[in-house]
Each structure stands twice: as C-alpha cells, then as structure tokens.
Design a protein around this nucleic acid. Sequence first.
DNA 1: TTCTCTTTTTGACATTTGTCAAATAGATTC
DNA 2: GAATCTATTTGACAAATGTCAAAAAGAGAA
Lengths: 186, 186
Amino acid sequence: MIPEQFKHIDPFILNHLVSDFREITTVNHFPKHHLLHEEGTICKHLYFIETGIARSFYHKDGKDITAHFALSNGGITAIDSFIQRKKSRYNIEILEDAVVHSMVHDDIHALLDQKPVYEKFVRLFLEQIYIDLAERVEDLLFYNAKERYDNLMLKNPSLSQRVNLGHIASYIGVTQETLSRIRAQK
Amino acid sequence: MIPEQFKHIDPFILNHLVSDFREITTVNHFPKHHLLHEEGTICKHLYFIETGIARSFYHKDGKDITAHFALSNGGITAIDSFIQRKKSRYNIEILEDAVVHSMVHDDIHALLDQKPVYEKFVRLFLEQIYIDLAERVEDLLFYNAKERYDNLMLKNPSLSQRVNLGHIASYIGVTQETLSRIRAQK
DNA sequence: TTCTCTTTTTGACATTTGTCAAATAGATTC
DNA sequence: GAATCTATTTGACAAATGTCAAAAAGAGAA
C-alpha cells in the first residue's frame, strides 16, 4: 500500500507520516453516480479510491470530457481548484460503488506547516503525477486513436468492461463512434 | 523576478532561499545549436533561461517532436530523467544564443535535505508546472490545429518569429505543412 | 552577386476522424 | 416478458489533417 517512490524515505518518519495523515483522513462509501465534486465550486478535498472507480470530467460544447480516471489506490481531485484555490471547471463522479478516503485541503496544509518534513512526501507525489501527465501529453502527440486506446488498455485492462464507451472515448480524445469502430476492427 | 506563487512565503525564508539557491547556481552563455542535454544520458541539471530560447525534444520515427519551449525566465530539463534518475529520451537544444542558469540535481537535493523548509518552494514550483501541463492536455483534447496554434501564440507571441515552423508544428501536434497552411489562411 | 543550403509554401491526393441519423443491443422497471 | 431507457454499433458522407513531391523564398558563404 506504500507507493514505490516512498520506499527511500526514513521508515521512522514514514510511520509518523502515515499515522498523521490517517488522522486527517475520513473514509466513506459512495454509490454509483454520486458527485464527489461539482463544477463552479472550490474543491476542498483530495480523494483516494480504495475500491470502485471515479472520474473527473468537464464540459465543452455540451459534451463532457473525461480528464482522469481513478481506480483502486488512485487519487483524484479537481486539480486546478485544489492547487489554485479557485472555482473548478471539473466535476468528479463515482462510476462504480466506491470506498473513498478523503482529506481536506486545509488539514493537509496545516499538517505541512506543522511538520515541513512531510513536504518531501508531497513533492514525491507531485513528481509522480507530473510524470504520468507528461506521458499523457506524449500519448496525445504521438499516437493515433487506436494506439491511444491500446495504450490505455495496457495500463488499465479492466477499464473497458467497467466504464462507458463514451467516457473512455473522451479520455483518449475521440468520439464514441470512432472508438466503437476501433474496437470492432480487431 | 520572484514568481507569483512565492509571494506568500515568509520574506525572511525567501531571502535565505534565494541566496542559498544562488550558491548552487552557475551561469553560462551558450550559442545557438548547442546541446544542453543529449538523449540516452541521465540529466543532472535543471536549467533556467535568462535570455534566448531552448527547447526539449525527442525522436519518433525519424522525426523530432518538441516537448517544451523555454523562453526568458522559463525553466527546462529532461524531466523524466531529472525526476526518475534514469536515461532520458529527451534532448535539450539552444535555439537562440542564451544565458542559462543551471543547478545540479544532487546539489538541489542536498540543499533540500539540509533545509527541508525549502521543500515548500519546490512543491509550489511543481504545482505550477503541473497546472501548465494540464492545460496542455486540455489544449490537445479540445482544440483543433488552428486553435492550438492561436493559443500558443497568445501565450508566446514572439515564438513565431523566433523559432522554426517545424518545431512549433510538432509542439502543437501537426505536420509543418498543415501549420504552414494554417498561417496562410488568415 | 551568385551559389548553396535550409526553411517554408503549395498542389494533388490519401487517410483518419467527425457528424448526423438510424438501427441494434443491453439493462431496468413494471 | 413487455415496455422503456440507455449504451453501443453501423452506414453514408463531410471535414480535418497527413503524405509525398516539387516549387518558392530566405539565409549564409564564397
């Protein structure tokens, strides 16, 4: 349950870190279709999915576009709002009944101010999600629709059975008709 | 010269921070075409451009793809390698004679270990570049070639006169012929 | 200036992906 | 199981972008 990039952190600090963060974490169960966050409001929570699936999405010309999927052990928030403390354009929706751990923005920052040694933990976390996002950019620049779909399926094989075609299509930047044809042709 | 997101940091700490980071920074002048970093090697430096332009790029099917442009006050590194300490697929090239400030990875981390209070500075930096990258993903998912070009020109109006068409084209994910036609049609 | 090299533009055509409408398949409720 | 939703697939065609080849324009060197 301890992510790869934290294995070099002093185990003593890590122990404290885990228990300190656990103290500001609450666990809830949410049903499918529940909105964890709604656009136009400031997102105060960082969520981690224990079981189930969530996605963040936003609207463009009436259509909705999936920005991110979070499966088991994945984190999700309205990142623009969470970082910059302004109204978000994202929604966060539960796609499959989920057990969700959540932390409040202010609690995280109070903890970081109190124990700056934990900043390193946050840095490693940010570095990881930055690398992931950079891969996504590369994916969009380099690969055609079929390749992008295949890449996503390699990373998350269960996704195709668990979420709507349309959500996956918008995530990889194609229409759902195109994705349907891509699936058909193999 | 102090970025927006640091204005809420204690000025006393910020003063020390600036002088401490200055101590591990060296300044060089590099001519056009100079390679700051070559693919296949581990990138040990974080660069900041004072004047001039640099770009990072990598290869795909013989073509090269621009991943990032750094203009005045912009930072650049082979991010995959710098964070994960492994061989990079990126090159970094000077496009216009440049004055470059550089810090060595190990010096940065030694400084952070010595003064963990600076981790917050790094976090804010990472948050900022994450937001920038998220905008880029949105740009690629939402907008067509002409819109992506216009968006880039809004952010960096000088770019079109200063760097090759082909570099800009690969950055926004189109061929240079397409970009040439986009430019012609206005 | 002339020659050469590099970059940009243009043309003709191919391929990929999008759009709109309708048909089919799958799920859910009564 | 029938009726009703919702999700997915299919067809016909349109629009955007890519490919390849060649021409034109621009930049630098002799």
